[in-house]
């Protein structure tokens, strides 16, 4: 492969700087020792990270987000793993339509989903409940869980399963001892990606969350609506740190380009 020219490298440098700048600024401002928004020119301070402790609603929202992400991704996998195996293994009538339906939450704007879920759950008296949040998040993270599990299931050598069957394994034993271990990397990555999607979602959740079930992004958004101060930057910095950690783990474990390839792609 031929090398990039100087012009291309300058373009690349500017591009990467602009991509990183907003994230970097948030993290830098979070360390300001001043009482107002400013870059930490006179040394770094953790005062705004300590201030978070005085705002229990942020801490509470963090736990809500964590529990919601972990649980909804897990439940989504309970539905997605069998569905992925069916779609990967069998050619049946309605297969393409089913796959399109299962990926459709990627295509439907999250505002519309938020409104639809709000309407749906309030009519059952579940508006603002944690249960409603779980169900809604299961639906929006389902495509991510499905896609990675599906990739693993398609990539699996079917004769390995046949070998297990010929040796006498069947049903649940076959799944637990052979199929699941073989697709496990895909399943775990699917869980991680689904978790991140759930953990980050604002647009849909903002319609469903009530005081007490507000997730961290919702809490941050509502806070920013009123005023922007260094507190929200320190909270953001924590969120960024958590996501980056998950991201690096995901990259090591599965390869980031594989995880993201085709993400959000509505057509296919």
């Amino acid at each position: 492969m031929r090398r990039n020219g100087p012009l291309a490298l300058v373009f690349h440098a500017v591009f990467v700087t602009v991509m990183v700048a907003p994230i970097l600024v948030v993290c830098l401002v979070a360390f300001t020792p001043e009482g107002y928004l400013s870059l930490p020119t006179n040394g770094f301070s953790l005062r705004w990270f300590r201030t978070i402790a005085n705002y229990p609603e942020f801490i509470h929202a963090f736990w809500i987000s964590l529990g919601l992400g972990a649980l909804s991704s897990f439940v989504a996998l309970l539905f997605a793993v069998p569905a992925a195996l069916a779609i990967a293994r069998y050619r049946f009538r309605g297969r393409d339509a089913l796959a399109a339906l299962f990926l459709s939450p990627l295509m439907i704007p999250h505002v519309v989903l938020g409104i639809a879920f709000l309407r749906f759950f309030t009519s059952f008296g579940l508006g603002g409940s944690f249960a409603a949040l779980i169900i809604a998040h299961v639906v929006i993270v389902f495509p991510f869980a499905l896609r990675l599990t599906l990739a693993a299931a398609i990539g699996m050598d079917l004769s390995v399963e046949m070998a297990a069957v010929s040796l006498g394994a069947g049903g649940w034993t076959l799944f637990r001892r052979v199929t699941l271990p073989l697709i496990l990397p895909g399943v775990i990555s699917g869980w991680a990606l689904a978790f991140i999607q759930s953990f980050d979602d604002l647009t849909m959740t903002v319609f469903l969350a009530a005081p007490g079930t507000e997730t961290l992004p919702v809490r941050m958004f509502l806070y920013i609506q009123d005023n922007i101060d260094p507190l929200v930057t320190s909270v953001s910095a924590c969120v960024i740190a958590i996501t980056m950690t998950a991201l690096i783990l995901l990259d090591r474990f599965y390869g980031l380009d594989r995880v993201l390839a085709g993400k959000g792609d509505p057509g296919r």
């Binding site: 050598d157 390995v160 046949m162 070998a163 069957v165 010929s166 040796l167 069947g170 001892r177 073989l182």
Partner: peptide
């Protein structure tokens, strides 16, 4: 097929990659 009691060797060998040689043989 699980109860036919036939032994099969596949073109791709179809070994269980997450098990050792002994565990593979012991599976049946």
């Amino acid at each position: 097929p699980a109860r036919r009691g036939l032994g099969i060797v596949f073109q791709s060998y179809a070994l269980f990659p997450h098990m050792t040689a002994a565990e593979n043989v012991a599976f049946g």
